[in-house]
Amino acid sequence: MTVTPAGPSGAPAVVTRALRKEFGASVAVEGLDLTINRGEVFGLLGPNGSGKTTTIRMLCALMAPTSGSAEVVGLDIEHQGERVRERIGYMSQRYGLYDDLTVYENLRFYSTVYGLHGDARAKRLAEHIHTLGLDDRINQLAGTLSGGWKQRLALACATAHSPEMLFLDEPTAGVDPAARRDFWKSIYDLAAAGTTILVTTHYMDEAERCQRLAFLSRGHLIALGTPKEITTQFGATSIEDVFIELQRRDEGVRV
């Protein structure tokens, strides 16, 4: 199966309108209006429980919003969920690799699940393995890889089908600095090739690498802009200061 181009060309990668999600009495995401442009590296930040994960799950069409709407790669998340999932990639800090499958088998499995098969799959996998420098390890069991290599393989699996949009949920948690640097290089390469990236992270140096950031706090969007704009808005010197300030506020501690 070939990946068909997105709906209306030039449509933003993500558009949400008054997106809201309730779990019983508590509201996880409240009135979220967000637009992410194609090819953008967009950071979603916020303390634990701020609604990041819920937002990502809704955008991946895993969870229906309570109200409001959202389009991802030009498709409605509620009514075109299956098609949304064909065009996006997702990688979490847990990687989602099968430890008891080899590097190649993991890649083969995920690319097949995304509908690739036959010669197209073989060609795509060969390219991919080469680009990611996994050639020497294709027959190694994924469980025996080091953290950095696992991360690389997870990214390879999440992008085997050349998704238009990639969701990265704390992808660099627990990885050494060198591997993190390599990883971000891959992210920029993907973005340069036109892939839209949405990333959540707890590392503030990574947040500074995003083109634009959104800060969530208790389900509300409280800041949106380039890292520079946001630091200025909060009168802080770095994104880290902004984050700590917000976390204090969330925890009800007066600064």
Binding site: C60, E82, R85, S92, R94, Y95, G96, L97
Partner: peptide, 14 residues
Amino acid sequence: ERGTLEQLVVTPIG
């Protein structure tokens, strides 16, 4: 436990 279920549900596998 290993997080692969989470990974599978975001694929178009259904």
